[in-house]
Structure formats: C-alpha cells, structure tokens
Simulated scan of single mutants.
Amino acid sequence: MKASIYVPLSLCLANGVLTSPLEPPRPGPQLLTLVFHSADGQYTMRMPADGREHLTKNGMAVNYIDAPDFTAQKQCTFRTPSKVALVNGINSRGLQQILLGPPQPVVGVTCSGTCVPTWIACVNPRTGVELGECCSGYCDKGRCQPWLSPVAAPA
C-alpha cells in the first residue's frame, strides 16, 4: 500500500506540482490616487497601476488632475474624447498636477509601473543603482525628497 503512494508523489515532485517557487511571490500592482478637478467640482479615483484601462465614469470637464502618490505624468495615459494637451506642474504645496487644455472629460486612465515613496531609499547604497523614480519628489542623497520641504509647525 505504501508503495502506491510513493509513485504518484514522486511523479508530482518531478513535474514541480508540489515544489515551492524559488522566489517569493511579488506584491500586486502599486495603488495610486488621482483627483480630477473641474469648474463644477472634483472626484477621486484610487486604482492599481496594472496596465489596464480604468474608466472614470464621470463626464465632468477636467481642468487639472492631482497626482499625490504616483508619477502619473510619466506612467499614465489619459483617454479623452478629443485631442488634449497635458502639461505637468507642481502647485505651491508641492503637489504634482497635470493640467489639461482644453478642459474635457477624462474617459479612462491606464497606469503601469512603480515609483518610490517620499523619504524611502531611491538608490541602492551597496551598488549605487537607482531603485526607481520618486513618486512625488526627487532623488537626493539616496532618498526621495518632497518637491517642497515640509514647513515646521509653529511652537
């Protein structure tokens, strides 16, 4: 009876059915937040940077988009009903923005890739290799820095 178990078990091992992967499972796609602003109000989308189009399901004519936690100006595509100029900017608080001209609805958004959060290492200290683009700032002294320095709270 024991011999009948060993044969199927050894076949499964030979085919890799019961073996564990050699590398740990990768986390899912990075999540990002986009805030769409128009003269009539605003709406927010939280979505994965999974390379798939995510429909906005909103017909507001968008003037600009806040991208607080992702390099959306480089890693996203915005589908609109007609041609639009996208201009990158940073507001007075250091928040990344994408300006749309002329204002129009954004039908869908496709984002992919990852970026490095603020204050996290953007360069491997041992190899000197860049670990990625900073989500909302720039790489300085091996760490992602915000576009604007935080203001100290009044005492």
Rank of each mutant, 00 (worst) to 15 (best):
A153P: 06
V151N: 04
G132F: 10
L99I: 15
L9D: 08
H54C: 04
W119P: 02
K2D: 13
T71W: 03
A155R: 14
W119I: 03
G113C: 05
L31S: 13
L32W: 03
P25T: 01
Q145M: 15
C144R: 04
W119Y: 15
Q73C: 04
C144K: 05
M1W: 12
T71M: 08
S82Q: 13
F70N: 01
Q42V: 01
G28L: 03
A155I: 09
A67H: 12
A3F: 10
S136V: 00
I65A: 01
G113Y: 00
A155F: 07
L86M: 15
Q96S: 14
L9H: 10
P68D: 00
K83D: 09
M47W: 01
V7A: 14
I98H: 00
N91L: 03
N58L: 06
K2C: 12
T80P: 00
H54S: 03
P102D: 08
A155C: 07
Q97R: 15
T77Y: 10
A155G: 11
V106R: 00
W119S: 13
A155E: 13
S20Y: 10
P154H: 12
H54D: 03
Q73D: 13
V123H: 00
K141A: 14
L11K: 07
E130P: 13
G108H: 02
E23K: 12
E53I: 04
G132I: 07
P21W: 02
F36K: 02
F78C: 02
S38Q: 07
I65M: 01
T19W: 06
C115L: 06
T118D: 12
S10F: 10
R126I: 09
T56W: 09
I65L: 02
Q75V: 04
C12Q: 09
M1F: 12
